[in-house]
Amino acid sequence: MANPESKPDGLEQFVENLLVRSVILLGVLFLVMHMAGKRPALWFADSSTGAKAPLAMRGGDPYIRALMRTISASESNVRSPYTVIYGGEHVSDLSHHPDRCVTIVAGPNTGNCSTAAGRYQFITTTWIEQAHRYHPAPPRMFFWQNYSFEPEYQDQVVYQWLSDSQAWGVDLRQLLKKGKVNTVLQRLSGTWTSLGYGIEDNSNTAELPSIYKQMLREELGQAAMR
């Protein structure tokens, strides 16, 4: 009978070495991506919710950034909004849009299903359409590859979309600078139906103008510190 305190055999030693090397490699990967200003596709939950959660992207106009956070206050008012899908479940793989069609159990679309996902609750078709226009890192090698749905890219696609006056028929930033928040929310309500003029208001809808003002104060303050 083997002594229970004997040294591990060759297989056990191999497994131990493999685990140690895997941990080291994972740590190096996270360090490199952090230094590069990026996050891996495997995204971990953030303790902040909705608008309070900081944007993953860096830089950009504070008026548009505040608008993005306001949209998430209504569309994804949960912890780790970048990972949430319709119905409240969270996903860990953001290398692509989750594309899960979850049955709608309340509201005007009851009985249908929704693929809405991420901080801005992109349905799959809208994500593909807007990612094709605005994604900063589109697939290049193979036509069947997907656009990355990592938090930074969710932000960048929405930021470029909201900044495109041709997409909305009006310059949203200029309207926001003039204090016309309600006009902007109404213009966007056809895309994000919980913004106050759509068909799916929620408990945060009425508070969105004041939420925007708070987010703008934060974003202007952060911009002044850069």
Results as ranks from 00 to 15, higher is better:
S72F: 02
P136W: 09
E5H: 07
E152F: 09
R226K: 04
D164I: 10
N182D: 12
V91N: 14
E150A: 15
L162K: 09
F122P: 00
W127Q: 06
R69P: 01
T193P: 01
P81G: 13
Q186M: 14
I211W: 00
M215G: 01
T49W: 00
S6Q: 06
T193E: 11
K177R: 15
F143D: 02
Q174L: 14
D61E: 05
V170C: 12
W43Y: 11
A41V: 03
A66K: 01
L31M: 06
V157R: 06
L220G: 00
V20L: 09
L18S: 12
C101Q: 03
A53H: 05
G169Q: 04
L19K: 10
M33L: 15
Q130N: 14
M1P: 12
E152K: 10
L31F: 08
S76V: 04
V28E: 07
Q222L: 14
E200M: 15
A167D: 03
L185R: 01
P98S: 09
H97F: 05
E5R: 15
A206M: 12
T115L: 00
V15M: 07
M33T: 13
P136F: 05
E200R: 12
Y63K: 01
L67I: 14
A41F: 09
A36I: 04
L185M: 07
T126D: 05
A224C: 02
G10H: 10
P8S: 05
P108N: 08
L55K: 05
S92Q: 13
A137K: 14
Q186Y: 13
E12M: 04
F44R: 09
F14V: 03
L195W: 06
L175C: 15
F30D: 09
Q145H: 13
I199L: 09
S76D: 01
P54C: 06
K7R: 11
G179D: 07
M33K: 13
F14P: 00
T70Q: 08
L185I: 07
E5N: 13
G190S: 15
D164E: 05
F14T: 11
A45H: 04
Y159W: 08
Q222N: 04
R173T: 13
S80W: 02
S114Y: 06
T126W: 02
K7H: 13
N3I: 02
A206V: 09
P40A: 10
Q156Y: 08
A117Y: 00
V157T: 14
K178H: 12
T103D: 08
A53Q: 11
Y86T: 03
Y120K: 09
E218H: 08
T205C: 05
N146C: 11
L26A: 10
L19N: 04
